[in-house]
């Protein structure tokens, strides 16, 4: 596989992680709206939302930070086979 494809796959996987995390967060937010509409125990719902929403963002950020951190701090020597 060419290094271009692999690079593309790497970026795609990071994008995929964000899609996953954001959809989980959107899901939780929509559940909060449902809870409000149905007059559920809103405090329990909000409590979970407050913790869970940033948590997922944190996980995705950690991964993204590592990915770009590693990309940035490479020795620029594209000929070495370890460059990807």
């Amino acid at each position: 596989m060419s290094s271009k494809t692999i690079k593309f796959l790497q970026y795609a996987s990071i994008a995929w992680i964000w899609i996953f995390v954001l959809s989980v967060d959107i899901w939780i937010i929509s559940l909060l709206i449902v809870a409000r509409r149905l007059h559920d125990a809103i405090n329990a719902s909000v409590g979970i939302g407050i913790i869970a929403i940033p948590l997922f963002l944190l996980i995705a950020s950690a991964l993204t930070y590592v990915f770009f951190g590693l990309q940035k701090h490479r020795e620029v020597d594209e000929t070495r086979h370890g460059s990807l």
Binding site: L9, Q10, F67, G69, L70, Q71, H73, G82, L84
Partner: peptide
Amino acid sequence: FLSWGWQGTPKQHKV
């Protein structure tokens, strides 16, 4: 694909 361009440079270690 999975190694994310790791070369073991000190800065990478730090990250």
